[in-house]
């Protein structure tokens, strides 16, 4: 693997952020970003499942027949989700009451199946693990950011923002903000290119 590929994979979680750029895994992002602790808890649980499933799917990628690959991936993912579920229920009872209902839903989080299909099924173990770490932390960062904003707004009395409606609105506004920043950066880039290229 080349250095450029390595860099691209390592920074994938930020540059192609699963939440704000790829728009995957929106359900947990909106539902459980009401407080920072919920957000980070669910983010890390998802990251753990993502890293483990990426590693195992990458290891088994030559053994799994192409036709049954999706059910095979789902079983691998569900196994790790069950591990997390049992671990949280046993050792983190507080977190279990607040995000317990959403832990089994990590199975159907499109980020995990998406990375399995797009990355782990085509790349080696180390790269897949790196991709899992990068994407998992990118997801945790995004959901943590939403959690911080919503808890902050809730703390100053705007409790609406800690309800589902607030989750939708904060997510929409953040996405618009990122779009805006991208537009400015792109406009600058094309302008600079124009000035450099022209005359």
């Amino acid at each position: 693997m080349s250095k450029a590929e390595l860099k691209e994979t390592a920074l994938g979680g930020i540059i192609s952020n699963p939440v704000f750029v790829l728009v995957l895994g929106t359900c947990p992002t909106i539902a459980k970003s009401d407080t920072i602790s919920n957000a980070i808890g669910l983010g890390l649980a998802t990251a753990f499942v993502l890293i483990c499933s990426n590693i195992f799917i990458s290891l088994l990628r030559k053994l799994i027949p192409d036709k049954v690959r999706l059910p095979a991936y789902i079983v691998i993912i569900a196994t790790f989700v069950t591990l997390v579920q049992l671990f949280v229920a046993k050792f983190l009872p507080d977190l279990n009451t607040s995000i317990g209902a959403f832990i089994p839903l990590i199975v159907v989080n499109c980020i995990i199946l998406g990375r399995a299909e797009a990355f782990a099924s085509k790349n080696g173990v180390l790269m897949s693990a790196l991709d899992g770490v990068s994407m998992g932390l990118g997801f945790t960062l995004a959901i943590g950011l939403m959690g911080a904003i919503r808890q902050g707004l809730g703390a100053i009395g705007l409790t609406l923002f800690q309800k589902t409606a607030g989750g939708f609105i904060v997510f929409g506004l953040l996405m618009a903000l990122f779009n805006f920043v991208f537009y400015i950066i792109n406009a600058r880039k094309t302008k600079a290119l124009f000035e450099k290229g022209g005359n």
Binding site: L160, K163, T164, G167, A176
Partner: peptide, 23 residues
């Protein structure tokens, strides 16, 4: 719709307003 809001952002905000009504 203002350009940064086109597509998903405005849909999310609309959904938020609908959610207020439902809740």
């Amino acid at each position: 719709i203002p350009k940064p809001f086109q597509g998903l952002p405005i849909a999310l905000i609309t959904a938020g307003i609908m959610a207020i009504a439902f809740a």
